[in-house]
Simulated scan of single mutants.
Amino acid sequence: MNLKPLGDRVVIKLVEAEEKTKSGIVLPSSAKEQPQMAEVVAIGADILNDEKKKDQIKVNDRVIFSKYAGTEVKIDGEEYTILKLNDILAVVE
């Protein structure tokens, strides 16, 4: 299934958090924080048509987003988050 965000929305898929600390301690799933890094899956038409915004973000970019931003949805067993472009804080290069 294809997700097509409307307006200035972006669809992201969360990147799995590390299961070990740097010192090698394995973290149980209850101790892990929700990751704030994700991969861009789709971009809304308002962003793609805006000359200033379209160069800021692309599909497959890794981004960092606000902690409580967006709406989580589950489609075909995959979990996605739909959020506004303003909720994306940085692109990881």
Rank of each mutant, 00 (worst) to 15 (best):
2 N>Q: 12
4 K>Q: 14
6 L>A: 13
6 L>Y: 12
7 G>A: 10
11 V>E: 00
11 V>A: 00
12 I>Q: 04
12 I>R: 02
13 K>F: 02
16 E>W: 01
17 A>G: 11
18 E>T: 02
18 E>V: 06
19 E>H: 08
21 T>G: 10
21 T>C: 08
22 K>I: 13
23 S>V: 10
24 G>L: 04
24 G>Y: 06
24 G>H: 04
25 I>K: 15
25 I>N: 07
26 V>L: 11
26 V>N: 03
27 L>I: 06
30 S>W: 05
31 A>H: 06
32 K>V: 01
33 E>T: 11
35 P>N: 06
35 P>R: 06
36 Q>S: 08
37 M>Q: 13
41 V>I: 15
43 I>A: 03
43 I>C: 08
44 G>P: 00
44 G>S: 07
45 A>H: 11
45 A>F: 08
47 I>P: 02
49 N>S: 10
50 D>R: 06
52 K>H: 12
54 K>L: 07
55 D>G: 11
56 Q>I: 10
56 Q>P: 00
57 I>C: 06
58 K>R: 15
58 K>I: 00
59 V>W: 01
59 V>H: 04
59 V>C: 01
61 D>W: 03
61 D>Y: 11
63 V>C: 04
63 V>W: 02
64 I>H: 06
64 I>V: 15
67 K>P: 00
69 A>V: 01
73 V>Y: 12
74 K>Q: 14
78 E>P: 05
81 T>M: 09
81 T>N: 09
81 T>G: 01
82 I>S: 07
83 L>A: 04
84 K>C: 05
86 N>M: 03
88 I>K: 01
90 A>V: 02
91 V>D: 06
93 E>V: 11
